[in-house]
């Protein structure tokens, strides 16, 4: 193979970061994310068992549904008995609860936070709005289907779902994690270009790197 071809292939492997101004591109990473396979069988089973019992959710209320997380934290429903704890930073969180409708301004932040979370990461989509737009299906400013922008593991239907429904959703997520079915992180990387295409189609002023490391 000629040297020119290798250079071109290398260029394709890198992210373009076209949204950033020329002089800032050097400040951000342009490495594509890569898939990370599971550990060996029994160790992975054990770690999955632990992951299901230590869910740290990102305390980022992305819509009205985040209101349902407050009763869940306090004494009435007390999510800490399931090992669920809120973390204020995406670096440490492993579950992202999308609370209801996501406007375009929010989906930009959602994508950013989701990419900054360390895998394996799980997404819990709350409310009808994340499934098909709910009562905002004809709105100019909210998305209709969340799974076109980030991979979703569990949906909770309703408008609004009660905290009991949320707990049921968390239990469903636990079962899925324990069975090793939640692989949203690798799914996102494998279909990276498709997700990016969808995201860039609605986020018109893309002024961040293509992947927020």
């Amino acid at each position: 193979m000629e040297k020119k071809d290798i250079n071109e292939i290398e260029k394709k492997m890198k992210l373009a970061n076209e949204g950033l101004p020329e002089k800032e591109r050097i400040l951000f990473s342009d490495v594509r994310p890569s898939t990370v396979g599971p550990l060996n069988k029994h160790l992975e089973q054990f770690v999955n068992w632990v992951r299901a019992r230590s869910l740290w959710l990102l305390a980022f209320g992305t819509g009205c549904g985040a209101m349902e997380l407050r009763p869940l934290m306090t004494s009435r429903f007390d999510m800490s008995r399931f090992g669920i704890a809120p973390r204020p930073t995406p670096r440490q969180a492993s579950v992202f609860v999308i609370g209801g409708y996501a406007s375009i301004k929010t989906i930009k932040r959602i994508v950013r936070s989701y990419e900054q979370m360390q895998g394996p990461k799980f997404v819990l989509a709350l409310g009808s709005c994340t499934i098909n737009g709910g009562m905002y299906y004809d709105s100019y400013n909210t998305i209709n289907r969340l799974d076109y922008y980030i991979p979703v593991d569990v949906y909770i239907a309703g408008c609004m779902p009660r905290p009991e429904a949320l707990i049921a959703g968390f239990n469903r997520l636990k079962e899925k994690i324990q069975a090793g079915e939640c692989d949203g992180m690798n799914k996102y990387v494998e279909n990276f270009d498709w997700y990016k295409k969808n995201q860039k189609q609605i986020i018109k002023d893309w002024n961040m790197p293509d992947y927020n490391w």
Partner: peptide
Amino acid sequence: FDTLEYSERTYYKR
């Protein structure tokens, strides 16, 4: 501005 038409054009309808 037809918001339903815009929504169907931009966001994927389930």
